[in-house]
Computed example of a mutant assay.
Amino acid sequence: MARADFYLIAKPRFREEPLRLVCELVKRAYEKGLPTLVLARDAAQAEQLDDLLWSFEPDAFIPHQIAGLDMDEDEADVLIAAPDADVPLRPIVVNLRDGAVEGTFERVLEVVPADESARGPLRERWKQYQARGIDLNKHDM
């Protein structure tokens, strides 16, 4: 059964740099050998995440790349996709975009902003996943 995990940003280090939380989530999936797709909000965010994955932990190397570059995308454990990239979903999807993820996945990870006023769309997304019969979980990070 598919599941959706909502990660609520609470800790100061994630408040200051929400993409750090994305790196942590991606690292966990990589350590479990799960192919991961990150749906970036835009090309700039995809590049920012690409840079951060190289540097967020000195000892952690997570093979990743941005979709649409010349390399073989099937080889990358973590694929970062800007909205214009047409890529198939993977078992783990980290969603940084505005809408719910459509299609088939094992788990979707949603990052919930610390700012209460920005959480409205995520409440809607929760309801959308719930209506599809997806198992829902909430985590404070």
Rank of each mutant, 00 (worst) to 15 (best):
R132C: 00
R132E: 14
Q48H: 08
K27R: 15
D86C: 00
D84F: 07
F56C: 04
A67T: 11
D42S: 03
P91M: 10
L8Y: 13
E47Q: 06
L79G: 01
K11L: 08
I92Y: 10
I92L: 08
P113N: 10
F61N: 14
I80P: 02
Q48W: 01
M71L: 08
L122M: 12
I134S: 06
W54R: 14
W126A: 07
G68L: 08
L96K: 07
L53Y: 02
L25F: 02
L37A: 01
D135Q: 13
N137C: 02
E73H: 11
M1L: 06
F105M: 07
A76V: 12
A81S: 11
R107Q: 11
M71S: 13
F14L: 05
H64Y: 09
D84P: 02
L25D: 07
G133A: 11
I92H: 08
P88R: 07
R125I: 10
E31S: 08
G120W: 00
E47D: 06
E116P: 11
P91A: 08
L25R: 13
I92W: 05
E16H: 11
Q48V: 02
P63H: 04
A118T: 03
P12R: 14
G68N: 09
S117G: 03
S117A: 15
A29H: 13
D74G: 13
D50S: 10
E73L: 12
I92A: 12
P88A: 01
M71W: 14
E31P: 00
L89S: 01
L34N: 12
L109M: 11
A131Y: 00
P63N: 09
A29N: 14
Q48E: 15
L19H: 04
G103I: 03
C23H: 07
G68P: 12
L49P: 02
D135N: 12
R41M: 00
D140K: 11
A46C: 08
A82V: 04
E124K: 11
E116S: 10
K27F: 03
P18G: 01
A2F: 04
Q128F: 00
E106N: 10
L34R: 15
A43R: 15
R132F: 00
A100Q: 09
C23R: 07
A114H: 15
D42V: 04
V38I: 10
S55C: 00
V78P: 14
R107I: 05
Q130E: 13
I66F: 08
F105D: 05
E116C: 02
Q128M: 03
M71F: 13
P63F: 03
S55R: 12
